[in-house]
């Protein structure tokens, strides 16, 4: 049996760990709230840009733009959003497993796909497996501003335009609630499924519908990427919060069972001492 001191040490160290996980849980909870608010303040922009894009793309039949039309697929792009750090439960592995399996199923050789990784965990995962990572960004802030992501978003959209790949899928964790996040696959480019719930308006175009689509569509695609990033940041903090909550609970349980065996060992030691004294006294008589 472990000595009294060993058990005591374990209790202390577990207590310290649980303090850390508790603090991390609270930090994540605060960050999650903030991330949720960021996602909310992005909604008006997204709704508006979607409405206008839909009005133009669906409203006028005779406009065309490379980003709206499907072309034969020679290479597929995958944009994968993960976090930079672990300790977030199954947050990263869910996304990565999903992407990995899809790629294995769809493609035979690495020439058929390209990966754009946002987040260190995803980048390292694909690099280690020698998969074709063509673009990556790490250390995105917890509350990302659009300016931070603009560069990679416009490069990604640019790669579709110059035919580096012919379609682009986005993989990220969609934030449903604090306890539920779903891995989502979304086809980003070409923009074939534009729809709007609101009534379409017919606009005058200044100078022309084509000119406007040239500005509008890249901006729309970039904002979809930004929206997904905000969504997955909220998921990340929620996942980390849950993971840390579980860790804290486990630590508490462990401390309870350790204190029980500590008390038992202490009692055993006392009993033994008493027996020894009584035995000693009896021997003297």
């Amino acid at each position: 049996m472990a000595s009294l001191r060993d058990i005591k040490n374990r209790i202390t160290s577990t207590k310290k760990t649980s303090q850390i996980t508790k603090a991390m849980q609270m930090v994540s909870a605060a960050k999650m709230n903030k991330a949720e608010m960021n996602a909310k303040s992005f909604v008006p922009y997204m709704e508006k840009i979607q409405e206008v894009t839909a009005s133009i793309a669906l409203g006028s039949k005779d406009v065309s733009h490379p980003m709206l039309t499907s072309r034969p697929v020679k290479k597929t792009g995958y944009l994968v959003i993960t976090s930079d750090r672990g300790l977030a439960g199954a947050y990263n592995s869910n996304v990565l497993r999903n992407v990995y399996q899809t790629i294995q199923k769809r493609h035979k050789s690495p020439d058929e796909y390209a990966i754009i990784a946002i987040g260190r965990v995803g980048r390292d995962f694909f690099r280690k497996r020698n998969m074709n990572v063509i673009l990556d960004i790490v250390a995105v802030a917890d509350q990302p501003a659009f300016a931070e992501i603009k560069d990679i978003a416009s490069k990604t959209v640019g790669m579709f335009a110059d035919e580096t790949f012919d379609e682009l899928y986005m993989y990220y964790s969609h934030y449903v609630s604090a306890i539920q996040q779903d891995v989502t696959e979304k086809k980003l480019l070409p923009l074939t499924d534009i729809s709007s719930s609101k009534k379409l308006t017919s606009y005058e175009f200044e100078p022309s519908a084509e000119e406007i689509l040239k500005v509008l569509l890249p901006q729309y695609a970039e904002s979809l990427i930004y929206g997904a990033l905000l969504d997955s940041k909220a998921s990340e903090h929620a996942a980390r919060m849950t993971a840390m909550q579980n860790a804290t609970d486990n630590a508490k349980e462990l401390i309870n069972s350790l204190s029980l065996s500590y008390n038992r060992a202490r009692q055993a030691a006392i009993t033994q001492e008493i027996t020894e004294i009584v035995g000693g006294a009896a021997a003297l008589e």
């Binding site: 606009y203 005058e204 175009f205 200044e206 100078p207 509008l216």
Partner: peptide
């Protein structure tokens, strides 16, 4: 240059 007053017809411009 573009100036918009109330009651303008629907329009989109970059």
């Amino acid at each position: 240059e573009l100036g918009i007053l109330p009651g303008h017809i629907p329009m989109v411009a970059p």
